[in-house]
Design a protein around this nucleic acid. Structure first.
Lengths: 353, 353
DNA sequence: CTGAAAGCGCTTACAG
DNA sequence: CTGAAAGCGCTTACAG
């Protein structure tokens, strides 16, 4: 009956048309070895002609293969609980896709310790992993790692910060440059002409590619673009403990009359603590991220603005993108910049990451 | 071999233990008729004991049933493109779950026309629908409709506004009361003691259960809670065209010295237009939603604050909740209140719904 | 009220 | 390099 035309799809039909067995079609579909080039070409032509879409239910049912994704991000540190949020998003997405046979393996490193990053990488058995979600905090080491992934054709997604020039599936995170630029825009409202502004980078690992520097660049360029004349000072603080940070800030403040401070990451609470204790809290203070400590200082008025970029959503969407690609062969946008939220003491109670 | 212990799961094992056929187990699982109570009890006991989780791949593969969800929301109207956003979120979620055999049928009604709501409902063939996502804009009519859904055991999810006391699967949308309350909190910063404030409700269909009134209530209660003495006026405008709205506002402004205006929905742009034209734009103005028109008036300074509540996310998450329930039998949170975003001319460029 | 058999669209050994 | 057969865990008729 011609009604059977509607069945003209699927592996069986491809096999029929190509005059081969279903097993051979399967081999071609999965690029397995042991098929003559001639057969490969014939089968592929038919696949294309039919616009064949595999039935993922049947596929998953038949191949009892588990899909494993490795997640490589910082753990929560003493100084900041920022990474709680991305992890929550990742866990949420993981729960959603677990019915489809996806398993997550989490590798948490210490943001203050490059060695721990390498250690965690060493723990990942790439032969058992179908995709990687990672925050490439240490540029050089990350580049080395993703090259290894590329050579094994394991897809990977960046979150939180990006490394250009690599073959990542996609990126979910802030537009670092723009978030610095927006911070400067806010700053403009807060300082008067000619008043001095201090940029503070706090991280044990500031090399010349560090993502904090992208924010700084955006910040500075706003002032250049708008032809503003405020002097901009900056310090790189390479220890993260309170004693060291406060000492560093103190040094600058003694020598300069600083009206406003811009801290390029979530460690702004450490600065707020110092300003408050030293009685210098009337200085304006802008920083990043909705951590517990930052929130407290925001509410007490010691931090004026926090810039937030949906850390939870970064994790959620990053993992989903990996899933869509690996399971459904769907490729989404490569660069996915999160909205830049401005949090003040007025709306912070209503903010959800 | 005892290694086979690991297979002790699935329909086959249940059937073996219950001494019945797999067909009978299937009947019990799906509450189909034609099984003796005794058999039902035995099988259910074993299901519970085994904590049986059906394999959704096998299920979908075997039962070629398509799942259809009906989506009942307002279409874009002349006065506001607000509903573009929820629809985008719904479409996005729909694309994600379409590989799992889910189809969407969209029924768009006119927010200004109760009749169109009923007409769209009449178009929905409930016998072909496994779930409904709806914005219950007209309370009474919605209640009638969801009662019908309940009697047919069709699950449904509310977005944008909620109706209490019904058996909805869940709600995704603003906490209306709180968004009014927050608006008042903002308002407090903007007006001086004793200055008059005007509340404006604009809708063709304001009955005494209308969701705009919940926002008004929140707004008023803030002033009561904080013991603020500002006189609060209010008008209900039951036509949405510019001529009518402007006339209504004009009437009030001539008789009262109003310092600030609070419009309880996205039609704030109509008010902004009037205030601007009449040269009264120095009055403070707060309203709702990130529509094209509102954005323009926000940028020009005629609207001071917009309250937004993630319309796209409402649609996306609402549909996903329906999917999780119908396909995976997963029940999520019942009440899902969206974050309340405050948009100003400063951060509006970075806001994404 | 119940069972036996076929089938959903793939993949996986195994045999050649 | 290729094919025939069995099987993944369910559901669907059909027969009784």
């Amino acid at each position: 009956m011609s009604a059977k035309d509607s069945e003209l799809t699927g592996v069986k039909e491809i096999a029929r048309r190509a005059n081969v067995s279903r097993g051979t079609v399967d081999r071609v579909i999965h690029n397995r070895t042991g098929v003559s080039q001639k057969t490969i070409d014939i089968v592929n032509a038919i696949i294309k002609e039919l616009d064949y879409q595999p039935n993922i239910f049947a596929r998953s049912l038949a191949s009892k293969k588990q899909v494993v994704f490795a997640v490589l991000i910082p753990g929560v540190s003493l100084e900041t609980n920022y990474w709680e949020e991305p992890l929550l998003g990742i866990t949420e997405a993981g729960a959603e896709i677990s019915p489809y046979g996806i398993t997550l393996k989490k590798y948490l490193y210490d943001l203050n310790d490059k060695k721990s990053f390498l250690e965690q990488i060493a723990l990942i058995d790439l032969s058992t992993v179908q995709g990687v979600l990672l925050a490439p905090s240490f540029i050089e080491e990350s580049e080395h790692f993703v090259k290894k992934l590329e050579s094994r054709k394991i897809p990977y997604v960046f979150i939180n910060s990006d490394i250009q020039g690599h073959d990542s599936l996609s990126y979910f995170g802030p537009d670092l440059y723009k978030s610095g630029y927006l911070s400067a825009h806010l700053m403009k409202y807060l300082v008067k002409e000619g008043e001095e502004i201090l940029i503070v980078n706090i991280s044990k690992e500031i090399d010349n590619q560090h993502h904090l520097l992208r924010k700084e660049e955006g910040f500075r360029n706003y002032f250049i673009d708008k032809k503003l004349t405020n002097p901009i000072l900056k310090i790189d603080i390479k220890q993260t403990d309170y004693a060291y940070v406060s000492k560093s800030i103190e040094d600058v403040l003694q020598r300069h009359h600083v009206a406003a401070v811009f801290v390029t990451n979530s460690r702004v609470s450490t600065v707020a603590k110092y300003l408050k204790r030293s009685g210098a809290a009337n200085r304006l203070l802008i920083g990043f991220d909705y951590t517990k400590e930052n929130l407290a200082y925001l509410k007490s008025g010691d931090i004026d603005f926090l810039i937030c970029q949906k850390p939870r959503e970064q994790g959620y969407k990053g993992l989903m993108a990996l899933y869509q690609f690996v399971v459904h062969a769907k490729v989404g946008e490569k660069n996915n910049f999160m909205p830049i939220d401005i949090i003040t003491s007025e709306n912070c109670d209503f903010y959800i990451n």
